[in-house]
Amino acid sequence: MTDTPPDGDSPDLDSCVRIGSIVSSNSHLDYVVEVYKERDCDRPPELHEREFGQPVFIKKTVNGTEHAVMGVIYDTQLVDPDQGRTGPRLAQDDQAQFTPGYIEERTTLAGVALLGTAEISEDGAIQESTHQMPRWTLEVEDTVFHCPDQVTVSFHTVDDQIQLAYMDRLLDIAGDLGSEVIVALIDRLRGMLPDDDPNQRVLDVVEQNVQWQAREQRGMV
């Protein structure tokens, strides 16, 4: 586990930052991830590494081939087991250390929507990426990794053409925040592509469409 996210031409999928582990799922494509804290691993993710719209992947070996199941953080939720309990608290504002209760068990959950899959090649890069719905089920405690930018771009590029073919499914899973997660993804892709890339304009059109539709649905226009 390295301290810094890898950057370079071929990022090593083995050395990516771990974001958390799966704790439950809402559907075949919609998983709940508990974000790692200080105690859970050597190097818990920093805030910007588990932000809204962050692409992630989960490694799965299927039939002897290693695959990466790609996903994106589309929602987060805070959990405080103490909240709502009756009775006085032992801890006072000025006595934070005097807390035998559950304060350490407060946690952040992240919703991850699956986008597609890709094969992981011998050298740790991804290939054969597809935006089809992943057919395999993930397991509880599967580790969710932070997806480096190069991998994100390569997952979204098919024959030099940018692809977001999972968009309709993502909009469906992400619900109210659907357009925001897509805009966040597009922003990220746009930052990674050169300014004069023809795909920039395609992304503009897609973003415009999504934004407009969302505003239309919310009754703004």
Partner: peptide, 8 residues
């Protein structure tokens, strides 16, 4: 068609 291809 390009936009359509992008969105699958």
């Amino acid at each position: 068609e390009t936009v359509a291809a992008t969105l699958g």
